Simulated scan of single mutants.
Amino acid sequence: MAEADVAWFADAWERGSIDYYLTLARGISPRELAERLAGGPVEQLPDMTPDDAYVRVDLKSVYTVGRMAVVGGWSLLVETGASYGMHTPPEASRDGVELLVLDPRQDAPPSSFAYLKDGELLLYQPTSSAYDRGGRQPDVLLSESLAAGLVTAGGPTHEEMYAPADGLDRRTIHMLGDRFGLHLPKEIVDEAALPAVVVRTSPPSTW
């Protein structure tokens, strides 16, 4: 992991200033990732910045615009607008593909992440509490969470149960960055004009 690549994102995430969804895939191209999330072919758009994507989403004929890149061996889709986020269908990770979904959930906190692989949701976890995890293998990142101080062996202490969750979002992103070797350079994720596609032309079924 390039520490600086993740540090800005972790800090912005903790401040609540990330208003897009990140889905990272290992084993398929960015366009195939977009097509799996769209459920079929996607419409190509001109290269777009986050601001361009925001303007393009009208919640009438375009609900989601995805900006695409490859970073650190992961295919990256930055989605502006409506996204499945933590409800990403497990089928999108079929055929041995790994997916990591970072869902800011600004409209319905807490924020969360999901880890899917080979057609299964292995782990869903709010970034504010590693004790509330679920999925087919909820302990798949337990050793990393213990090492990062996100959980305590034997369950939450009395202090943890009543202490504010300050810093947990940021530390969770750093844990994921270390575990998956993530590179999230600000100049790409948050600034660059990237190849873009229309991912959704109608609301997600979770709306």
Results as ranks from 00 to 15, higher is better:
residue 109 P to L: 01
residue 165 A to C: 05
residue 113 F to A: 06
residue 168 L to H: 07
residue 145 S to T: 08
residue 137 Q to D: 15
residue 94 R to Q: 09
residue 157 T to M: 06
residue 129 S to N: 15
residue 124 Y to G: 08
residue 124 Y to H: 11
residue 121 L to G: 04
residue 141 L to N: 04
residue 168 L to C: 02
residue 122 L to R: 07
residue 149 G to D: 06
residue 157 T to G: 10
residue 119 G to S: 06
residue 94 R to M: 04
residue 94 R to E: 11
residue 153 A to P: 14
residue 110 P to C: 00
residue 166 D to W: 12
residue 93 S to G: 08
residue 90 P to S: 02
residue 144 E to K: 10
residue 103 D to C: 04
residue 89 P to H: 08
residue 143 S to T: 13
residue 86 M to L: 15
residue 137 Q to I: 07
residue 158 H to Q: 12
residue 84 Y to G: 03
residue 133 R to M: 10
residue 161 M to R: 15
residue 100 L to M: 12
residue 164 P to M: 04
residue 118 D to L: 00
residue 127 T to A: 05
residue 147 A to C: 06
residue 86 M to A: 14
residue 160 E to M: 10
residue 151 V to N: 00
residue 119 G to L: 00
residue 132 D to Q: 13
residue 99 L to K: 09
residue 108 A to R: 12
residue 120 E to M: 09
residue 164 P to S: 02
residue 94 R to W: 03
residue 166 D to S: 11
residue 136 R to V: 13
residue 86 M to H: 14
residue 100 L to Y: 05
residue 117 K to T: 01
residue 93 S to Q: 04
residue 90 P to N: 07
residue 122 L to K: 08
residue 84 Y to W: 12
residue 114 A to K: 05
residue 152 T to Q: 13
residue 158 H to R: 13
residue 119 G to C: 03
residue 168 L to Q: 10
residue 167 G to H: 02
residue 169 D to C: 11
residue 86 M to Y: 14
residue 154 G to W: 04
residue 169 D to R: 13
residue 114 A to W: 01
residue 121 L to P: 02
residue 120 E to S: 13
residue 160 E to V: 00
residue 129 S to F: 05
residue 154 G to A: 08
residue 119 G to T: 00
residue 147 A to Y: 08
residue 159 E to Q: 11
residue 119 G to F: 01
residue 99 L to V: 08
residue 162 Y to P: 00
residue 91 E to R: 10
residue 138 P to L: 10
residue 93 S to Y: 03
residue 105 R to E: 10
residue 171 R to D: 14
residue 139 D to H: 14
residue 125 Q to H: 09
residue 104 P to S: 02
residue 169 D to A: 08
residue 123 L to D: 00
residue 165 A to R: 15
residue 84 Y to H: 13
residue 159 E to I: 04
residue 111 S to K: 00
residue 99 L to C: 09
residue 163 A to K: 06
residue 83 S to R: 04
residue 95 D to H: 11
residue 84 Y to N: 11
residue 128 S to N: 09
residue 82 A to D: 15
residue 155 G to E: 09
residue 99 L to M: 12
residue 141 L to G: 00
residue 145 S to N: 13
residue 129 S to L: 05
residue 148 A to R: 02
residue 109 P to Y: 03
residue 161 M to S: 15
residue 97 V to K: 00
residue 154 G to F: 10
residue 150 L to P: 02
residue 89 P to C: 07
residue 111 S to C: 11
residue 109 P to G: 02
residue 91 E to A: 14
residue 143 S to V: 12
residue 116 L to I: 08
residue 171 R to C: 03
residue 155 G to F: 07
residue 155 G to K: 09
residue 146 L to H: 09
residue 83 S to I: 01
residue 136 R to G: 05
residue 168 L to F: 09
residue 121 L to Y: 02
residue 135 G to K: 10
residue 122 L to M: 13
residue 97 V to I: 12
residue 163 A to S: 12
residue 128 S to G: 09
residue 83 S to P: 08
residue 85 G to C: 05
residue 126 P to W: 01
residue 156 P to C: 03
residue 140 V to M: 09
residue 160 E to G: 01
residue 108 A to I: 03
residue 144 E to N: 06
residue 164 P to Y: 08
residue 101 V to S: 04
residue 130 A to V: 04
residue 123 L to H: 06
residue 128 S to V: 14
residue 169 D to L: 08
residue 95 D to Y: 03
residue 155 G to L: 10
residue 102 L to A: 03
